[in-house]
Design a protein around this nucleic acid. Structure first.
Lengths: 220, 220
DNA sequence: ATATTGCAAATTGGATCCAATATAAAATAG
DNA sequence: CTATTTTATATTGGATCCAATTTGCAATAT
């Protein structure tokens, strides 16, 4: 007899749950730069002991999202202006190449899914979801490349600047501009023009970089 | 009264010690692909409890060096041929740009230190140290760029393919070839020719990539 | 009043113990 | 004898307890 397999293993470990929750809180800016992470407090919040909390924190440190000092504890790590710029430079180097290699492999489903993220992004009025939809749009297109390592590295880079990107979108005309650029990138993908998609992605990123530098003072 | 300051805080935590030891063992190939990491066994080896061991393992997982399954434990993760190729592609994208930006900032000390690593590399007869000296050479030059995030990411990429690179150096004429290419890269840096250093770095990496593909069967 | 010292509370790092799960071996049914 | 079930052992995940260290505050001296 064959049973429908139900994935019971999806019940994640406590440390994973804490890790994801803290990661989300940090990249969304709920936990702000310099904020100390008290193991005891977090443990109480999640109804666990400090052991899974410590595991989560050590993973966050490995990702560069927190810094810990022996016997002093962990604090959410921030980004200096130059560090933020460096990550934009990094993205401007990687992401164009990833999308260039992704374009030839994009299925109609991929394009449709990206279009949906873009549409939701352009119509959403809630600043809190903008960041997510923005990431969805790009990552959907990138995933077609099948370059898993590149995707992981990009994800980490995005985690580090997510807070600042969100702030960017709210400020000035960041929203409309991103929106338009997304459309142009999507169009290039739709037409199978890999080089154009790459170039537009590059400009999308360097543009964000410049606008961040300009707003750097209002952000911190 | 002024005392000479002694850094007593260098006494690292147990989890860090275990982490570093395991990381080294993995990238050097002492722990081979698929090898299970038994918490109890490792704890005994380091005279600690399993707690620091688990923290170390979770950090290794975050770096992609091990894979864990709930209630089953951790095993050293390997690389498929395509994954290895992808990481070489990644390096070929990043490292030329890093060295391009590093060249204008290289001090005589940097160049001398790199030359020393290169000389030690070319004269060493011990395959076990080749990998280290190779990394020293490149990373010394890259560090002049001051691009910390890029350096961290490169380090992680190197960690993942270190084992395979070492094997490369031993096989065929990998050693002499690397040696010659290092000289050429160093020369370009010495002459302040950033573009040439970048191009030679790119070819150095893509060359290693091709030779890995050729030897892929003998490696696994 | 200010600076220094001593002490107590808070906090982290690690050890030991217990629960949950997986794996291997033994027992049992056909 | 083979396949299934049951049991025992090994292993991991987490809770609780203890030690090491930091930090804030009071006590003391100048």
């Amino acid at each position: 007899m064959k049973l429908k397999s139900v994935d019971i293993s999806k019940t994640a470990s406590a440390s994973s749950i804490v890790f994801e929750a803290l990661r989300k809180a940090i990249i969304e800016g709920d936990l702000t730069e310099g904020e100390p992470l008290r193991q005891d407090e977090i443990a109480r919040l999640f109804n666990t002991s400090r052991i899974p909390v410590r595991e989560a924190i050590s993973r966050l440190e490995e990702q560069g999202l927190v810094k810990t000092q022996r016997y002093k504890g962990a604090v959410v790590s921030g980004l200096s202006a130059t560090e933020a710029e460096e990550i934009f430079d990094f993205r401007a180097l990687i992401e164009p190449e990833v999308i260039r290699r992704a374009v030839p492999q994009m299925s109609p489903e991929t394009l449709e899914k990206a279009r949906a993220s873009w549409a939701a992004f352009s119509q959403s009025s809630d600043p809190m979801t903008w960041g997510d939809l923005n990431r969805d749009f790009h990552s959907t297109l990138y995933q077609a490349s099948g370059l898993q390592y590149h995707l992981d590295v990009i994800d980490n880079a995005m985690d580090r600047i997510d807070r600042y990107l969100r702030a960017q979108l709210v400020l000035s005309n960041g929203m409309e501009r991103a929106n338009e650029e997304h459309m142009e990138i999507w169009e290039a993908c739709m037409n199978g023009n890999a080089d154009l998609a790459a170039e537009r992605t590059r400009r999308h990123i360097t543009g964000a970089r410049e606008s961040l530098i300009q707003n750097i003072h209002s952000l911190r």
